[in-house]
Simulated scan of single mutants.
Amino acid sequence: MSRLLLRISVWSLIILSIGELLFAADTITAGQSIRDGTDTLISSFQSFELGFFSPGNSNNRYLGIWYKISPGTVVWVANRNNPITDKNGVLTVNNDGNLVLLNGEKSIIWSSNSSKLPLDTLLSGMKLGWNLRTGFERYLTSWRSADDPSPGDSTYRLDITELPQLILRTGSKKVDNGMDTDFVAFP
């Protein structure tokens, strides 16, 4: 089999998770890896950084993307529900061309081949709401706590049961966020 050079960008990591398409110059290629504690990728405009981190006072490790100028402001976490318990995590490209996150035992913790992940940050250009053709919903989910990025009780999603509007909920309770989030429908 001929050698195939796969180019995966920092943005592709986000995009593969949410099904969008963007471009960036910084890449990880087949045969390369990002190791916890030694490697990160920085976007071409120096805005974002991808690497391993421990949130708050946690000892658990996660693969994430944060603002380069504000490392504490994490905008995406790959393994929200599956933390790595040591500093032996590795991000690499598998034979199928997917990004895979491995723990110290070489078990797959996360893969870009995932079909659906809840997000916690809305960045410019990202979509929120329903794809009425496919039924796929994009919405935001809070972290459980400052130490735990697993999905918490709060969601921010588009309610289309009546007049479409963005709704903030904690559990099943609608929260008044003080913002006028109703959409105006035009004929």
Results as ranks from 00 to 15, higher is better:
residue 9 S to Y: 00
residue 10 V to E: 03
residue 11 W to A: 14
residue 14 I to H: 05
residue 15 I to G: 08
residue 17 S to V: 01
residue 21 L to E: 01
residue 22 L to D: 14
residue 24 A to L: 14
residue 24 A to K: 10
residue 26 D to P: 01
residue 28 I to Y: 02
residue 30 A to I: 11
residue 31 G to M: 08
residue 36 D to Y: 03
residue 37 G to K: 10
residue 40 T to P: 03
residue 41 L to K: 07
residue 41 L to M: 10
residue 42 I to L: 13
residue 42 I to N: 09
residue 44 S to W: 00
residue 46 Q to G: 06
residue 47 S to D: 07
residue 47 S to N: 09
residue 55 P to Q: 06
residue 55 P to F: 06
residue 55 P to K: 04
residue 61 R to C: 09
residue 64 G to H: 06
residue 67 Y to N: 06
residue 67 Y to W: 07
residue 70 S to V: 03
residue 72 G to S: 08
residue 74 V to W: 05
residue 75 V to A: 04
residue 76 W to I: 07
residue 77 V to G: 08
residue 78 A to G: 03
residue 78 A to I: 05
residue 80 R to L: 01
residue 80 R to V: 03
residue 81 N to I: 13
residue 83 P to W: 00
residue 88 N to R: 14
residue 88 N to V: 11
residue 92 T to P: 01
residue 93 V to K: 04
residue 94 N to C: 11
residue 94 N to H: 04
residue 94 N to L: 09
residue 95 N to Q: 15
residue 95 N to H: 13
residue 95 N to P: 09
residue 99 L to E: 06
residue 101 L to P: 03
residue 102 L to W: 07
residue 104 G to A: 09
residue 106 K to R: 15
residue 107 S to A: 15
residue 107 S to P: 01
residue 110 W to G: 11
residue 115 S to F: 00
residue 119 L to C: 15
residue 120 D to Y: 00
residue 120 D to E: 10
residue 122 L to E: 05
residue 123 L to G: 05
residue 123 L to T: 07
residue 124 S to P: 09
residue 125 G to Q: 03
residue 125 G to T: 03
residue 126 M to Y: 06
residue 127 K to A: 06
residue 131 N to G: 05
residue 135 G to E: 02
residue 135 G to A: 08
residue 136 F to E: 15
residue 138 R to F: 08
residue 142 S to K: 06
residue 143 W to I: 13
residue 144 R to V: 11
residue 144 R to F: 07
residue 148 D to M: 05
residue 149 P to F: 06
residue 152 G to Q: 07
residue 156 Y to K: 10
residue 156 Y to P: 06
residue 161 T to N: 12
residue 163 L to W: 00
residue 164 P to S: 10
residue 165 Q to C: 14
residue 165 Q to E: 08
residue 167 I to K: 11
residue 171 G to Y: 03
residue 172 S to V: 13
residue 173 K to Q: 12
residue 175 V to N: 12
residue 176 D to V: 08
residue 176 D to C: 08
residue 177 N to I: 08
residue 178 G to L: 05
residue 179 M to W: 00
residue 185 A to G: 00
